[in-house]
């Protein structure tokens, strides 16, 4: 169950095709990805996410370090290509072919037998909501449709690992949600997924494990829950009250809260900030009722991965 399917060790990429400019895009990163999980590489543009995927999928030459996919060295290109499938950042569908032909030819490249590939194409077109458009040329496909077709194509040869590079970038919110559902659905069926994104909500919602990447380095890696615990302060509940007696503050502190209750006085109200999450709200309300305090508002401040990124780098994810 806890088997690693990707292991990389001090993987480094220095682009130097342009002799004047040397770009150290990935700086000796190491991590492993477990079978059956959705693993996310989260980081701003230019962090080195695409380069990392490129090295794992034989498209980018490794400068140093090594990596293994299902036990196969990434230097063994042909063997690796059999194990993986990639949905790239940029649409690379075959514009001379119809949607269905894109799938069927892809499967042919991988030697999938005829019966199987036709059946699989039917299934996947249906699953991705493209059944109606299967005989259309892909030139006219919208971003969301192209993205779903590329995922269907990737699945035609039943890869061990599916790589998705910024799969939802540029999609409208609805297409994005749809794509998330598909990713979850696939993963529920046992598919290991390696994705990159610069949307912290996407990483948070989808991934079992996230590595946060910046300037070619992995800063931290853990489950979303554990990552968010790293932010000092953590989740907070803010109360907007007319007045806050010492008794009220003391009663709040009696609740099972981990940190401080901080107080901020404004002209016509008092704001109390309590460390903790939504599980405290019921208790807080009881205290407020018992003290008959005037309450104007309750706000839950949940820590996001963005907060963690700011904590780690002093910058926002999207700048």
């Amino acid at each position: 169950m806890e088997k690693s399917v990707i292991e990389i060790n001090r993987l480094t990429k220095i682009y130097s095709s342009d002799s004047r400019r040397r770009v150290e895009a990935v700086k000796g990163i190491s991590f492993s990805v477990k079978q059956g999980e959705i693993f996310g590489l989260l980081g701003p543009n230019g962090a080195g996410k695409t380069t990392t995927i490129g090295m794992l999928t034989t498209r980018v030459r490794v400068t140093s370090g090594d990596g293994h996919i299902a036990g196969v060295s990434i230097k063994d290109e042909v063997a690796v290509k059999k194990l993986i499938a990639v949905v790239p950042q940029q649409n690379n569908l075959d514009r001379s072919l119809t949607a269905r032909e894109n799938l069927v030819f892809h499967a042919k490249y991988f030697g999938v037998p005829k019966r199987e590939r036709e059946q699989k194409a039917d299934e996947l077109l249906e699953m991705m909501g493209l059944g109606q458009r299967q005989n259309d040329y892909v030139r006219a496909f919208s971003g969301g449709m192209a993205q779903r077709l590329m995922i269907a194509r990737a699945l035609m040869h039943a890869p061990e690992i599916l790589f998705l590079d910024e799969a939802t970038t540029g999609l409208d919110p609805q297409s994005r949600r749809l794509l998330w559902d598909k990713v979850r659905e696939l993963n529920a069926g046992g598919q290991t997924i390696f994705l990159t994104t610069h949307y912290m909500d996407e990483a948070d919602e989808l991934c079992h494990c996230i590595a946060i990447m910046d300037h070619g380095k992995v800063l931290v890696m853990d489950t979303p829950t554990n990552l968010k615990k790293m932010v000092p302060g953590g989740n907070r509940i803010e109360l907007e009250l007319g007045e806050a007696s010492d008794g009220l503050v003391e009663a709040l502190k009696e609740l099972d809260i981990s940190g401080e209750v901080s107080r901020h006085d404004e002209a016509d109200k008092v704001i109390l900030s309590i460390q903790g999450d939504q599980s405290l709200i019921a208790g807080i309300m009881r205290v407020i009722q018992a003290e008959s305090a005037d309450i104007f508002g309750v706000r839950l401040h949940q820590v996001t991965l963005e907060d963690l990124f700011i904590h780690l780098t002093g910058r926002r994810l999207r700048e």
Partner: peptide, 15 residues
């Protein structure tokens, strides 16, 4: 520009 050939470069065969 169109990178269409990428899918064929990903086919399990030597470049």
């Amino acid at each position: 520009a169109i990178k269409e050939i990428e899918d064929r470069l990903m086919a399990p065969i030597r470049i």
